[in-house]
Write a protein that binds this DNA or RNA. Structure first.
Lengths: 362, 362
DNA sequence: ATGAAAGCGCTAACAC
DNA sequence: GTGTTAGCGCTTTCAT
């Protein structure tokens, strides 16, 4: 009973947090019994369990996770770092993660890096202070310090949205689930070439900063070379992706390369912007120009003409990452090699049908 | 070098966390001095400060926020609950918040409620366990328990995206920054009526579940009544908003009310979907039908024709919420009444020009 | 099955 | 300035 409370006559002032000690007192048991009743009910008699649960409800008791974590040494937080929330891809990956992780008691901590390794490093530092049980990172490329910190922490790490391939990318820190961007670039070129296009451009933002873009372009260009097609057609912008930038990119490309017949954009937003610009200019798609996007966001299939793009399994990537993480955390997973979730070209109306000659208005 | 390592003969096993005690030992000072050097540098001599900082860097020391919070009683987390991350509105509000809050040492904890009060309640419960220093909520309508829990916690709360108005909405829990949805509904009707439209419909999702939608519709309908216009034209869907649902909503409305001449959609995504459907059907916008959205997301101005919509100051709302919160947390703010950030009708091409007769293709 | 003591990593409060 | 002590709220021992 009593504790100290009796000694401090009515502090009154600041609303005191309800602690497990309060619950225990109300239930007439030891603190430890209350703790057990709440966390490992099977270790406590029905009788006491009932009293404790009742008392907890009565007091609206909410356990202090920080204190619990401190005492048990357990990690509670699970930081997820994505480059941006403006691409629905990442929102959907998050949803995939959220399907499993919070249920297992982990709290997702969200951070956006804006495609900057420095910002990523700072976030990792902050989040590491929250006793994370694991970390989810986007991409395979991180600052030295980020890598060192993460290694030293000894916690599981999952890198998503890119695939570690020997010789092409660095080694993954730990778990890795994604797809090969180089492969995407190559596949798109092959597809467009099969459609009969010959003057094929790549257009994107952060083309030299974001390592995934770099690899996508590399795959794109080497496929072009292999096929004996011009591989110097590129549109770049350093602004963040937006419909407006997509339009500008298209305009720039069109005036720089009048003979252009196909453009692969780094994401659907840029492609959609370009499509809108074509509409205004009276450029016919796909008769005059083919446009391809990347990601298969919702808008792609609703545009008119509907956008040919590359589907990546974002939701699945999130779910899979969560599952692997859970397995690893429970100790039942070791030495898991990188997992390729692949991608798929979604053929729609902004490109001609492959292997067929150009067609006029369908 | 050496550190304690020598005393515990190679625990080897699990990587030990670097604590402030380790830093202090390396620097040859008391733990408390190390703590001060790190957190209140002005209280420590240059000499020792240097040694401590050096030691911390040397060891890659990362303070344990949970332990720090526990000891100081300070809140560290700052939960933000939004209905969804799929509307860029909320992403931008988040960005507004992130401009200030993390800099001030607070960690944003993100939760999405899916427009459900039950889910909101569960999230509040979870987040309260993280010793939040404040909470940001979307909307003014919460479950009883949510309100009770929040009240009992005694921490500041900001409700955004809706405006408390006596007689119309409930009282705000604490701080409130937003705009009146009823007023939006009314303003849209007045605008459309001024453009000469007479058969004006509202179309949205969750029309009876989301209290903000309910109030928007209420304002919409009473304005119609006031103007003597038909006010029963409504399209509803219980699916989450998407381009596809926008198209369906339009189709349904068109066949139910052939004389329809204007539709106000609950968000830009629905409106864009409807616009795409019009394109396919050959319905001319705005000649045959006016379309209006809500939110002014990026796509609105890039659509063709560009979408008339209602701009709400999301970024500003986030920033303002952060500022107020910071002020309140520092104790320099009391009894702040609700703040109306307003809204603005962005006239573009999917509606005729107000007060002018219908115009043919411009 | 239950309880008492100790301590997680840190900082407020009080010495010196 | 700097060090010492106590204790945040909880859970891990280790008794009983």
């Amino acid at each position: 009973m009593s504790r100290v409370a009796a000694e401090k006559p009515i502090t009154g002032r600041k609303r005191q947090r309800v602690t497990i000690a309060d619950v225990a007192r109300l239930a007439g048991v030891a603190t430890m019994t209350a703790s057990r009743a709440l966390n490992r009910p099977e270790m406590v008699s029905e009788e006491l369990k009932g009293r404790v649960l009742h008392a907890a409800a009565e007091l609206d008791y909410i356990p202090d996770r920080a204190a619990g974590g401190l005492a048990s040494g357990a990690g509670l937080a699970l930081p997820v770092l994505v480059p941006t929330l403006h691409h629905s891809v990442y929102v959907q990956i998050l949803e995939g993660l959220e399907e499993r992780l919070p249920g297992a008691g982990y709290q997702l901590l969200l951070g956006s890096t804006d495609y900057s390794q420095e910002k990523e490093e700072r976030l990792v530092e902050v989040f590491l202070g929250w006793r994370p049980s694991a970390v989810v990172l986007s991409g395979l490329d991180h600052s030295e310090r980020t890598v060192r910190l993460l290694r030293a922490s000894g916690i599981p790490v999952v890198e998503i949205m890119d695939l570690a391939v020997a010789g092409e990318t660095g080694q993954p820190l730990d778990l890795n689930i994604g797809f090969s961007h180089a492969q995407v670039g190559g596949a798109v070129v092959e597809y467009l070439a099969a459609c009969g296009y010959r003057q094929i451009a790549y257009a994107g933002t952060l083309t030299e900063i974001d390592p995934r873009s770099v690899r996508r372009i590399r795959g794109f260009q080497s496929a072009l070379k292999r096929l004996g097609l011009p591989h110097h057609l590129t549109g770049r912008s350093d602004l963040p992706s937006s419909l407006a930038v997509g339009r500008d990119l298209l305009s720039g490309l069109l005036s720089a390369h009048p003979k252009l017949d196909a453009v692969f954009f780094a994401n659907d937003e840029l492609a959609a912007g370009a499509l809108f610009e074509c509409l205004r200019r009276g450029v016919r798609v796909p008769e005059d120009l083919a446009i391809m996007g990347f990601s298969d966001e919702e808008i792609a299939s609703h545009l008119y003409p509907a956008l040919t793009t590359v589907r990546i399994p974002r939701h699945e990537m999130g779910r899979l990452a969560a599952d692997l993480l859970l397995a690893r955390l429970s100790g039942s997973l070791n030495g898991q090699p990188p997992i390729d979730v692949g991608f798929e070209i979604m053929q729609r109306q902004t490109t001609r049908t492959p292997s067929l000659p150009a067609q006029e208005k369908p």
